[in-house]
């Protein structure tokens, strides 16, 4: 068992106007090659903070973050990020948004035609070829999110980091994007770390669900293995006893052990 990402005794402290704020403390996590891990926890517990640390967008105050045997010193294309708010560049077409990433990763080795083919393949994968020449403001929220996913997958990252990728979407769109994501993950065998606040989504998509305690000084409370065969089908899972067990375990953690104090 080879861990591609190791989070060792990581703590994260923010300097705020009111003094120091300990967001994360003593976080230990190992993520295996090809594994899909989701981070779940109450709002403000530090899920995004942890994901940003893995992405390298922020550096930990204490402890070590290791990716592929090397300390994480900053962001890089081998750790692609799907941003919650899609973050497509509004002045580029959908094609150009994806192409920018493709060009950066493969531009040095491959010719123009190959880069274009990669971009088109990525758009095809999320069924967005028809909108390749549209500007981001011309497509719907779910479509933007799909382009964001295409951009991340097109980079063929070692690790894909997603921060509430479907958080802003309605239930129907979310379900169809989850199915799409299952297909894409199946095809690429990518290592995925995903933040979510949706219990069903966590069980449906992941191999392990990492449950975080409430902040401040949040840490990992429990880790749940989801032993359901892949590929998973949402309709069959509804009747699966293990699915129900996993769901119950997460709900119990969130709503009994980590009951959010009434604000």
């Amino acid at each position: 068992m080879n861990a591609i990402v190791k989070v060792e005794n990581v703590g994260m402290t923010f300097d705020t106007k009111k003094g120091r704020f300990v967001a994360l403390q003593n976080v230990n996590l190992q993520i295996r090659q090809g594994e899909v891990v989701s981070l779940i926890g109450h709002s403000g517990c530090g899920k995004s903070t942890l994901l940003n640390l893995i992405a390298g967008l922020t550096l930990p105050s204490s402890g070590a973050m290791i990716c592929n045997g090397r300390e994480i010193a900053g962001p890089g294309p081998e750790r692609a990020v799907v941003f919650q708010n899609h973050s497509l560049l509004p002045w580029l077409t959908c094609f150009e948004n994806v192409h920018l990433a493709v060009e950066r990763v493969f531009g040095a080795k491959e010719g123009k035609d190959k880069l274009k083919a990669r971009t088109n393949a990525a758009l095809e994968m999320v069924h967005m070829s028809h909108a390749a020449q549209k500007m981001p403001h011309e497509i719907s929220g779910g479509m933007k999110q799909r382009i964001g996913i295409a951009r991340a997958f097109a980079m063929e990252p070692k690790i894909l980091l997603m921060d509430e990728p479907f958080g802003a979407l309605d239930a129907l769109t979310r379900a169809s994007l989850q199915d799409e994501l299952i297909g894409v993950m199946e095809k690429t065998g990518a290592t995925v770390v995903m933040v979510t606040h949706d219990v069903d989504e966590a069980v449906l998509l992941s191999d392990r669900v990492v449950m975080m305690t409430n902040g401040p000084a949040a840490t990992i409370g429990e880790i749940l293995e989801v032993k359901l065969a892949k590929p998973r089908d949402r309709l069959q899972l509804a009747h699966d006893p293990h699915f129900a067990e996993c769901r119950a375990a997460i709900l119990e953690f969130l709503y009994q052990k980590q009951m959010k104090k009434a604000a």
């Binding site: 962001p75 294309p77 950066r104």
Partner: peptide, 15 residues
């Protein structure tokens, strides 16, 4: 957000 995209893609200063 856009700067984060640039950082993740590790774009050159020119780009």
């Amino acid at each position: 957000d856009y700067l984060n995209v640039a950082r993740v893609l590790n774009l050159s200063e020119f780009k």
